[in-house]
């Protein structure tokens, strides 16, 4: 008799626990939407950002892989054929009329052709491309380091961030209206060592190396997943394979100062600065929270 009672008590507790669990998650959704709680959650990024900058202060190099380690099929990030009509026209003419505009807080605004970019000192590397969604692909990247372009343009002292204006749509609902953009800070944009582009003796490259390439190609046979909208922090414009080239488009890079750049901002990129340089490749806002932090810190 006692046993039966005790079991029913357990059942009561279990039911209560399951009920509490069921109530807990909607409660978490409400928390997720509360501005104060969101600020609390996002403050974790201060720790993550600080810890990463501390550990990566020496700018250690990302691992380079052997040719045989490349993904057999390289998943392309973002779209490989943006719907934008200007882009399509550029693609039709083999990007002969395409210019990479570098403007904003620069001493010498640039408008570079593909030939200009190819003339810059470049190099190749086989590194891993990671998506914030969780997948990875290893490919070969060739091109000029972003730092080369930025040094040619010459940054003004007020420049803090680099904004990349892409040819991709922000998402399918904004076709032709809002184009994707991405931003990084100068720590990520520059390698601190001046001899950097020729440091090929070492087997490891900087973690964000691919990010700093203005032009790159993937040595693999790229297959497209046009619907994919995955994040990458790598702002890389492609040359090389025809498909990869499609990502170059009318993208620009903008140099901005603090406040220019919150990725979640609904303002179109052009409203934020009158300058731009541009590199291909779509990235996603989710991965850029670290830069939101930079912007905040800049404001403080």
């Amino acid at each position: 008799m006692r046993r039966v009672l005790s079991l029913s008590r357990r059942r009561l507790i279990l039911t209560g626990a399951a009920g509490a669990g069921g109530l807990l998650l909607p409660g978490c959704d409400r928390l997720s939407e509360a501005p104060d709680f969101r600020r609390f959650l996002q403050s974790g990024e201060i720790l993550s950002f600080g810890a990463q900058r501390l550990l990566l202060a020496g700018q250690p190099l990302a691992r380079e892989f052997a040719p045989r380690d490349r993904s057999p099929t390289f998943r392309t990030n973002g779209s490989t054929l943006p719907v934008d009509s200007t882009y399509q026209a550029l693609a039709a003419s083999g990007f002969a009329d395409w210019r990479l505009a570098v403007d904003g807080f620069v001493q010498r605004p640039l408008r570079l052709t593909l030939a200009d970019l190819r003339a810059l000192p470049g190099r190749s590397q086989i590194t891993r491309h990671d998506c914030v969604e969780g997948w990875s692909a290893i490919g070969k990247w060739t091109g000029a380091p972003l730092a080369q372009v930025l040094m040619t343009a010459g940054l003004q002292p007020s420049a803090r961030y680099i904004v990349f204006h892409c040819a991709d749509d922000m998402d399918s609902s904004t076709a032709g209206q809002a184009l994707y953009y991405e931003s990084i800070d100068l720590f990520d944009a520059f390698h601190p060592r001046p001899s950097w582009p020729t440091r090929s003796t070492t087997n490891r490259w900087k973690s964000a190396m691919a990010r700093r390439f203005v032009c790159a190609s993937n040595g693999n046979s790229a297959t497209s997943t046009p619907s994919s909208s995955c994040a990458s922090r790598r702002s890389t414009a492609f040359r090389g394979s025809a498909r990869a080239r499609a990502a170059i488009g009318k993208t620009r890079v903008t140099l901005g100062t603090r406040g220019d750049l919150s990725p979640g901002s609904s303002r179109p990129p052009s409203a934020r600065s009158n300058s731009r340089v541009n590199l291909g490749r779509k990235s996603e806002t989710n991965s850029t929270s670290i830069y939101t932090f930079s912007a905040r810190r800049g404001t403080a």
Binding site: Q52, L55, L56, P60, L61, A62, R63, R128, D130, G134, R204, K206, S207, A208
Partner: peptide, 10 residues
Amino acid sequence: MSPGMDAACP
């Protein structure tokens, strides 16, 4: 899973 950590601690 962090690319930065992979560079710092290969």
